[in-house]
Structure formats: structure tokens, C-alpha cells
Design a protein around this nucleic acid. Structure first.
Length: 219
DNA sequence: ATCCCGAGGG
DNA sequence: CCCTCTGGAT
């Protein structure tokens, strides 16, 4: 089998984006994004859990600590009690407090609209920063590659198998083959597709609108 | 058993 | 690359 050309990959990637865009249209953020601070905290909490689980705890979390200033004064222990139903709750509780403290101390109480500064916040990596930049500030300089986007990119063979466990490299692969106009919608539309059709354990290939162009289809 | 809108440290 | 952190849903 000759290796596929980048042009062929690009063509498939664009087709994926256009079909999913027609299917889902504009998709709103599933997490609390009332303001940038709440979005940072919500996305930080969403690691290895579902957005539904996050949405269960954030009302109480933001009722008790509504602002960076308030959360900067909380202890990790009291945050942990509120978010205990989420995975990694001890680490996340610490990150909430430390990120809030850094927002207050280093950024004047405002979440920075800048990739380099966002990833300085404890618990915030490129994936979270991409979401915040996109949703809160309308800045698109990357694609948030979470477990869904990663899985779909690899099933469609838009990223080499060697990058399957390295979402940062998967992101670079997608940025290379996809024209920038498509970046904005990838995360939310692909997540929706991933939950509805391209499920990790039981993909519904027989109902999939991409089955004719998917190298991994198993009808 | 496996996955869920990951990040940090080695 | 690896591992750890972690509970809930399926």
C-alpha cells in the first residue's frame, strides 16, 4: 500500500468538516461559559469526565466562589468537597485555587486572552486554552483536541497512528491539513458526532454519514 | 472492563 | 513515550 498523499488527507478532512457542519450547524458550548473565569474552571474540571458530570457541580461551586478573587481565598479541601463526584478531584481542587490566585495576582483578576499566558495557569493545557480562546474570546489559533477529536482524527486516518497517544501532535497534524476557516467548529461539532455516532466502544457505522470515506468503517 | 471535552511530571 | 490522579456511567 502506497502512503496516502497529504492532498488526499486534506480532501477527506475538509469533507468531514463540511458534512458535520451541515449535520450539526453552529454548536454551543456544553459547559458553563457565562464568563471566561467560569469557562476556565469548567473546562479544567472536565478532564476525564463528562460535561454532564461537570454541570452537576458547577452551580454550587460558582454559588460559593463566584469570582477569581473569591476562589483564590478558598482552600483546596473545601473545593474538593464540592467537586468530589468528579475524577481527580484533589488535583483539580488545587488547580482551581492556584489558577484563581494566579489570575488575581498576575493578570489583574482577568483571564488572559493569550495562549502563552493561559497555559501558565495550573491545570490549563493547550486543549483547555484552545477552548477558552475560541469560546470566550473568539480567537482561533488552534484546535482543541480532546479524547473525541483525537479518536475521530485517527479513525479517519487524518493523523498517523504513532500520534494516537499524543493529542498535541494530532492537533498539529489537523492544523497542517485543514484550512484555517474550518478550525473554529472542529471541537464542538466533532464532540457531538463522537458521542452520537463515532462512539469509542460501539461506533454506529451503519448510521454514520462518513462511512463511505472512513478507512476504519466496520459495518 | 472501558471510557469520559487532560494535565503535569518523569 | 510512560505514569499518576480519580469517580461515575455503561
Amino acid at each position: 500500500m502506497p502512503r496516502e498523499t497529504n492532498a488526499a488527507k486534506r480532501e477527506r478532512a475538509i469533507e468531514v468538516c463540511e458534512r458535520l457542519d451541515r449535520r450539526y450547524g453552529p454548536v454551543e458550548c456544553f459547559l458553563d461559559h457565562e464568563n471566561p473565569f467560569r469557562l476556565v474552571i469548567s473546562v479544567l474540571l472536565s478532564a476525564q469526565t463528562t460535561d454532564a458530570q461537570v454541570n452537576k457541580v458547577t452551580p454550587e461551586l460558582f454559588r460559593r466562589w463566584p469570582t477569581p478573587e473569591a476562589m483564590a481565598g478558598a482552600t483546596p479541601t473545601e473545593i474538593a468537597e464540592v467537586i468530589k463526584s468528579l475524577g481527580f478531584y484533589k488535583t483539580k481542587a488545587k488547580h482551581c485555587v492556584e489558577a484563581a490566585q494566579m489570575i488575581v495576582a498576575d493578570f489583574g483578576g482577568h483571564v488572559p486572552a493569550d495562549m502563552k499566558e493561559l497555559v501558565k495557569l495550573p491545570g490549563v493545557g493547550r486543549k483547555t486554552a484552545n477552548i477558552v480562546l475560541n469560546v470566550s474570546f473568539g480567537i482561533v489559533e488552534g484546535i482543541a483536541v480532546d479524547t473525541h477529536v483525537n479518536r475521530i482524527a485517527h479513525r479517519l486516518k487524518l493523523s498517523p497512528k504513532t500520534h494516537e497517544k499524543e493529542p498535541l501532535k494530532t492537533e498539529q497534524d489537523l492544523l497542517k491539513i485543514l484550512p484555517k476557516e474550518y478550525w473554529r467548529n472542529v471541537n464542538h461539532q466533532w464532540i457531538k458526532f463522537g458521542r452520537e455516532i463515532c462512539d469509542a466502544r460501539k461506533p454506529l457505522c451503519s448510521e454514520c454519514p462518513l462511512s463511505d470515506i472512513c478507512p476504519s468503517v466496520r459495518c
